[in-house]
């Protein structure tokens, strides 16, 4: 009697055939390929269907354009009113961009001060928290009372909303440096500045970039919301005012057109900040690494 399995294995020819995969591996590879294509096709398809369905709803129910315009009409309005809308878009972009820029400088600067002095953090972080948790709509009217320049008021509102995530994330990042590396800095007698430059700032970079992604979107929201509160028209008005104005005049297609511009702007800001984060971290940080 023998224990060995005597079943004949099928003859195998390895000569010059290249790698051989089993059915399971091939199924996996196929699935991966399909997923790679689906990643782009499915969102586009679903979005197209949604827009088509929107169009059909209007047609089927005979909805008037001043209640719900067809997507084609919105697009048409976007093109026809491009002169007015693009000028407003530019204003909104300026406020958003400036507010984000000042938020980066202010947030990182304050975070560095916090990391240098615990007492500074104890003294000022309550203010930062209060500003953050109070809804901007409720602070904005006061701001526009005290600040004469409408532009500066808008900027201040957008800044208040955008700066906190940068401050909070960067503060956390500056504290999160590896403790052994901190010891190493002590052993090699690094001064405060070197410690910040060579250890804390690079450690904080991924945290800061996470904050930047959030702040980018918030700056846009801040700019739009503040303009709703500020109200008054005239020259130099942003997209939010265009929406209000179109609403008063029952120009619903124009409301939609302005809304689309705001949404697209938000997406572009998010994509840009994500790209910045990816480029800055791709060489070393876990979040940017591909698993193989």
């Amino acid at each position: 009697m023998t224990i060995a399995d005597t079943t004949e294995l099928p003859a195998r020819s390895d000569a010059g055939q290249g790698p051989v995969f089993d059915a399971d591996e091939e199924r996996r590879a196929r699935k991966k390929r399909i997923e790679g294509i689906a990643k782009y096709v499915i969102p586009l398809a679903v979005m197209s269907i949604a827009i088509w369905y929107w169009d059909r709803i209007v047609v089927w129910n005979e909805i008037e354009p001043y209640i719900l315009p067809r997507p084609g009409l919105v697009l048409q309005t976007l093109i026809e009113d491009w002169g007015t809308l693009s000028a407003s878009l530019l204003i909104t972009l300026q406020i958003t961009g400036l507010a984000l820029g000042v938020a980066v400088i202010g947030g990182v600067g304050l975070a560095i001060i916090f990391s240098l002095s615990r007492y500074a953090e104890m003294s000022f972080s309550p203010f930062a928290v209060i500003l953050q948790v109070t809804p901007i709509v409720s602070i904005a009217p006061l701001i526009f009372i005290y600040i004469e320049s409408r532009m500066v008021g808008l900027l201040l509102c957008a800044w208040i909303v955008a700066f906190f995530p940068i401050l909070a994330n960067t503060t956390l990042g500056l504290k999160s440096a590896d403790h052994n590396l901190r010891d190493l800095m002590t052993i090699y007698r690094a001064n405060r500045w070197q410690r910040l430059r060579y250890l804390q700032l690079p450690s904080a970079l991924p945290y800061f970039l996470g904050g930047l992604k959030i702040a980018g979107g918030l700056a846009l929201i801040g700019a739009v919301v503040a303009e709703y509160v500020a109200g008054t028209g005239g020259i130099g008005t942003g997209l939010a005012f265009r929406i209000l104005e179109a609403g008063y005049r029952l120009q619903i297609p124009r409301m939609f057109a302005a809304l689309i511009l705001i949404a697209v702007t938000g997406v572009i800001i998010y994509a840009t900040t994500s790209l910045i984060a990816h480029l800055a971290l791709r060489k070393w940080h876990e979040s940017a690494l591909k698993r193989d």
Partner: peptide, 20 residues
């Protein structure tokens, strides 16, 4: 732990004591 700076190359890591 190896305690290397992940954002720096091997060479830059070894350079640290001199850099400081």
């Amino acid at each position: 732990e190896p305690t290397l700076m992940p954002w720096a190359t091997v060479e830059q890591n070894v350079w640290l004591p001199f850099r400081l």
